[in-house]
Design a protein around this nucleic acid. Structure first.
Lengths: 110, 110
DNA sequence: TTGTTACATTGCAATATTACGATAAAACAA
DNA sequence: TTGTTTTATCGTAATATTGCAATGTAACAA
C-alpha cells in the first residue's frame, strides 16, 4: 500500500521518525551545516553551494521549514534562511533522549 | 529522476543522512525501543507487539540490520535480535556531533 | 511601464518506500 | 518421513521522494 500506519505507533515514535526523516537526505544535511557555518544565507547561495537546481533546493527548504528546523524571512526580493534555535534545541533533546546510553548485557544477544 | 545525487555531497553528509533514514519510520523506532527495553527478542514478538504483518516487520529488521544498528543470531528456528552496542555508540556520537550547540546570534536571521 | 532578479509552485518522469499475501527455507517434533 | 513453527524472500500495488524544466509571483530598478 505504501502508506505508513501512523495509528499503530505512539505520538513520540511518530515524532522521532518525522524528525529523522527531515534529516534523511544529504542535501538537507548540507543545507543545515551551511546555515550553521554562515549563520544565515539566501536560497541562491545554497543553489551555488550545492549544485542542485533551484527548484530542488527550494523543495528541500520547504521540507526543513515544515518541521520548523529552519525559518525564512523575506528580505526584499530574496529570502533569508536560518536555523530556528528553539526547534534545534528540541532536536538535540529528542535525539539525545532516544539515543540514550543503554546498559548492554555481555554480548547482548540471546 | 527520483535518484539522490550522492556524489554532490561529502561522505559525512551522506553518512548522517543514511543513519537518519534508518530512523525515519515509526515502526523502526518502535522496534529499537522494544529491543532496548527487552534487551533482545525474536521477530515473532515484534509482529505481535507492533501489529504489522510478518513480512513487513522482517523488511524493517532487514533495513536496521543493513545499517548495523541491530544484529540477529539464529536460535534454532527463530532469530534473536538485539542492538549492536558498537553501532549504537556511533549513532550517539554522530548525532551529538551534528546536533551540536550552536551560538545563535540574536534572533539569528538577517 | 518594462525588464530583471530571486524564489515558489506546478507538472512530470524516474526511483524508492511501505505494506502484505504467497511462498520458500530451515529447524524441529512426532 | 510428515507436519509445524519461524523467518526470509518474492511479487505486486499503493504511495512517497527526488529532481528538474517551465512557469508564476513579488520586489525592485530603470
Amino acid at each position: 500500500m505504501g502508506l505508513t500506519k501512523t495509528a499503530l505507533f505512539t505520538k513520540q515514535q511518530n515524532e522521532i521518525a518525522a524528525m529523522a526523516k527531515a534529516l534523511a537526505h544529504p542535501a538537507r544535511i548540507a543545507i543545515i551545516q551551511y546555515l550553521i557555518k554562515q549563520n544565515a544565507c539566501i536560497c541562491g547561495d545554497l543553489v551555488e553551494q550545492l549544485g542542485l537546481a533551484q527548484a530542488t533546493i527550494s523543495q528541500h527548504l520547504k521540507e526543513l521549514k515544515a518541521v520548523g528546523i529552519i525559518q525564512g524571512t523575506i528580505e526584499g526580493a530574496s529570502v533569508c534562511y536560518c536555523i530556528d534555535p528553539k526547534t534545534w534545541k528540541r532536536y538535540q533533546q529528542v535525539f539525545a533522549g532516544f539515543l540514550k546510553d543503554v546498559d548492554f548485557k555481555d554480548s547482548s544477544c540471546c
